[in-house]
């Protein structure tokens, strides 16, 4: 019985996702059309990319609240450069440099100065936002159309944002699953002490996680620029919450050591977007979107907590011979 519960809890998000799709599909005909689902994926690509980066930080039991601010700062710099006559590739390169640099600052604050990740990245959030507003002079900055073209261009018939998102997710997944770095990152998240004992350089690993997160934030900034073509003071606002939520929905634990870039981040981002699109499709009051979204996140995290507790209960014994009995016994309790 407990095993069944654990299996169900392990797949809670897929079940939740299916539930959301079916509910809205039932309420709003056309919601389940291919075009609409494809659109859903493209719309959720910035959040998915952010969540992929966030997964690395959450993996080591950290958190990065500054991703939205980094997006805004990088976009503001790129915008300013474009308006100042620089070419687009140069502006993009600047963005892709800014992201990891901000991540490095976060990583050093956390690993060298031992500041709690939450407060360190809250501080850099304000620094980044302030910097972005400074550069844009708190006005919306309309960029040349080349960004919008970038956002709507297609490669082999596939929208470019989709390709970028897929590439990031694939690369992130390979990094996390197929390299020593990724495996050591996962070990560190389970227990930094045990990882250090096993001979892993924990500091460098954790710093790298923040750098990757910063890089993904910059990429997400590019994707959003492609959608909007402008940098407003609200650019990337509260995106950190969406990213954390998507990663957590995708099965990444806030306590470190558990999670995956793919399909987790995509699934989480798509679920959030599906809730939003579904609410649009049934003409719900737009002000209710965050309420429904946060309810979905709350349920997902509650399920994650239950899963953790069940797991802990399943290992709370010291002698092996009564193990089979213990399982059925504690399930009955």
């Amino acid at each position: 019985m407990k095993r069944t519960a654990l299996i169900l809890l392990d797949h809670a998000v897929i079940l939740l996702f299916a539930g959301v799709l079916l509910t809205f599909g039932f309420l709003a005909p056309g919601f389940l059309s291919w075009a609409s689902l494809g659109n859903l994926l493209i719309q959720s690509s910035p959040t998915a990319v952010l969540a992929a980066g966030m997964t690395f930080v959450l993996m080591v039991a950290g958190v990065d609240l500054s991703v939205g601010a980094v997006m805004a700062l990088a976009a503001a710099v790129a915008g300013k450069m474009m308006l100042g006559g620089f070419s687009m590739p140069l502006a993009l390169a600047a963005m892709l440099f800014m992201g990891p640099a901000c991540g490095l600052v976060n990583g050093l604050l956390v690993t060298r100065l031992h500041i709690a990740a939450f407060i360190a990245t809250l501080g850099t959030l304000w620094l980044g936002r302030g910097g972005a507003l400074w550069i844009t002079e708190t006005r919306a900055m309309n960029l040349p159309d080349s960004f919008l073209h970038l956002g709507s261009s297609r490669l082999l018939g596939i929208p470019l944002p989709g390709i970028i998102c897929a590439a990031v997710l694939a690369a992130g997944n390979v990094l996390l699953e197929q390299t020593p770095f990724g495996r050591q990152l996962r070990a560190t998240g389970h227990s930094a002490v045990a990882a250090a004992k096993a001979g892993i350089n924990v500091r460098r690993l954790v710093t790298a996680a923040y750098v990757i997160c910063g890089f993904c934030a910059a990429l997400a900034g590019i994707l959003v620029l492609g959608q909007l073509g402008a940098v407003s003071p609200k650019f990337g606002l509260n995106k950190e919450f969406a990213a954390i939520a998507a990663a957590v929905l995708g099965g990444t634990s806030l306590f470190g050591g558990r999670g995956a870039v793919f399909p987790g981040s995509l699934l989480g981002a798509a679920l959030i977007q599906a809730v939003e699109n579904g609410l649009v499709a049934i003409n719900a009051n737009p002000y209710l979107y965050p309420v429904v979204t946060s309810a979905v996140i709350f349920v997902a995290v509650l399920l994650d907590t239950l899963r953790q507790r069940l797991r802990a209960a399943a290992t709370r014994r010291i002698f092996p011979e009564t193990e089979a009995k213990a399982f059925s016994a504690s399930a009955a309790a």
Binding site: T124, L127, G130
Partner: peptide, 16 residues
């Protein structure tokens, strides 16, 4: 406004 924001960001980092 934004300069104040940045200064406050630095202040919170210093405080931490």
């Amino acid at each position: 406004h934004f300069v104040i924001m940045m200064i406050k960001g630095v202040v919170i980092l210093l405080a931490a």
